[in-house]
């Protein structure tokens, strides 16, 4: 369910999707950088953000192609060694996008592919997340946004527990109280 206030949802919907126009469209030439006129002809291949592609798809104006991150090449790589694939580079919102794009494209196998990818990458996230202290390890650069949220959730809760165990002051100052107030009173002149 898209959430109006969820920034990740908003960013996810900005992912470019390659679509093929099923009808000619006038006055929207700016969508197609290669277009010479101000119109898009029927059958033109254009990259549109997901939110626009979705709306146009519902109006049957375009047909969507499977995005590159769900290509056969990626699938082969995932099958070979899921945890080594840099999914963030392919698409930072890999799972969300897959989840949303699956009903739009004819490819029925995306759902199962996503589940397979997540299940096989989950193990590594789990094994590293609670034991990593301090800085994030190198492998976290390969995680998609969803995966790194999962990773961070575990890491930060463990870090918070460790911090509590070591101790320290139990009362913490609110951040706003830390600011120094500027004194506006004029300095008394030293005689």
């Amino acid at each position: 369910m898209p959430s109006y206030y969820n920034i990740d949802d908003v960013l996810m919907e900005d992912e470019p999707i390659s679509v093929v126009f099923q009808v000619g469209a006038n006055g929207v030439g700016l969508l197609d950088p290669g277009s010479e006129t101000n119109n898009i002809e029927k059958g033109a291949k254009v990259d549109l953000p997901f939110w626009l592609a979705h709306e146009l798809y519902l109006r049957q104006a375009v047909s969507t192609n499977v995005p590159a991150c769900f290509s056969m090449k990626t699938r082969k790589e995932i099958q070979a060694d899921a945890s080594c694939v840099d999914l963030r580079f392919r698409c930072p919102y890999f799972y969300e996008l897959g989840y949303k794009i699956a009903p739009l494209v004819g490819d029925k196998s995306i759902g199962a592919f996503l589940r397979y990818a997540f299940t096989s990458r989950y193990g590594e996230i789990l094994s590293k997340s609670h034991s990593t202290a301090g800085t994030a390890p190198k492998f976290s650069a390969r995680l998609t946004k969803e995966e790194s949220q999962l990773f961070e959730a575990a890491r930060s809760s463990m870090a918070a527990f460790k911090k509590w165990k070591i101790g320290g002051s139990r009362l913490e100052k609110a951040s706003i109280l830390g600011r120094k107030r500027k004194t506006t009173l004029p300095q008394p002149s030293i005689p």
């Binding site: 056969m72 699938r75 995932i78 099958q79 799972y95 989840y99 699956a102 009903p103 490819d107 029925k108 196998s109 995306i110 759902g111 199962a112 592919f113 996503l114 589940r115 397979y116 997540f118 299940t119 989950y122 969803e146 999962l150």
Partner: peptide, 20 residues
């Protein structure tokens, strides 16, 4: 995450299985 990815509308029986 698992619940979402395993929802019935996502997992349909594909005609040609491309991944194990």
């Amino acid at each position: 995450a698992f619940y979402k990815l395993d929802s019935p509308e996502m997992i349909q029986q594909p005609e040609a299985t491309v991944n194990r």
